[in-house]
């Protein structure tokens, strides 16, 4: 399994053709207390860059874009009752959705953890 990061502050774990997507710890820290996560319906197909989910704090609603193209095969239903999971465990239990990849080459050019850390440090 390998983990990728985007400059839109999403992380992607890829295992075979399935990619698990969430937002980074840095992102949750910036957003503050998350109160609601609107997840896509299973079966939805995204092109890279489409609006895929919405994450809400009290004062803001932020769109999460699909970091890669694919079909939604599963969403994290635990977030419906416990949106705070995104704050407490953004990069593991606070995952958003799983995609079946349509174009693995899109992963090329994404950051690894070290590169993302460097990117965040530069902000």
């Amino acid at each position: 399994m390998s983990r990728y990061f985007t400059d839109e502050h999403e992380w992607i774990d890829v295992e075979g053709e399935i990619a698990t997507v969430g937002i980074t710890d840095y992102a949750q820290e910036q957003l503050g207390d998350i109160v609601f996560v609107e997840l896509p319906a299973e079966g939805t197909t995204f092109e890279k860059g489409d609006d895929a989910a919405v994450v809400e704090s009290v004062k803001a609603a932020s769109d999460v874009y699909a970091p890669i193209s694919g079909e939604v095969v599963e969403t994290n239903s635990a977030l419906e009752d416990e949106p705070a999971l995104v704050n407490s465990d953004a990069e593991e239990d606070g995952w958003f959705f799983k995609l079946r990849l349509t174009d693995a080459t899109e992963l090329e050019g994404l950051m690894n953890e070290a590169a993302y850390k460097k990117f965040v440090a530069s902000l």
Partner: peptide, 12 residues
């Protein structure tokens, strides 16, 4: 993702 950081603290 879009990330609006502006705004007020919302939990005392």
């Amino acid at each position: 993702m879009t990330m609006l950081k502006e705004g007020r603290p919302t939990a005392p």
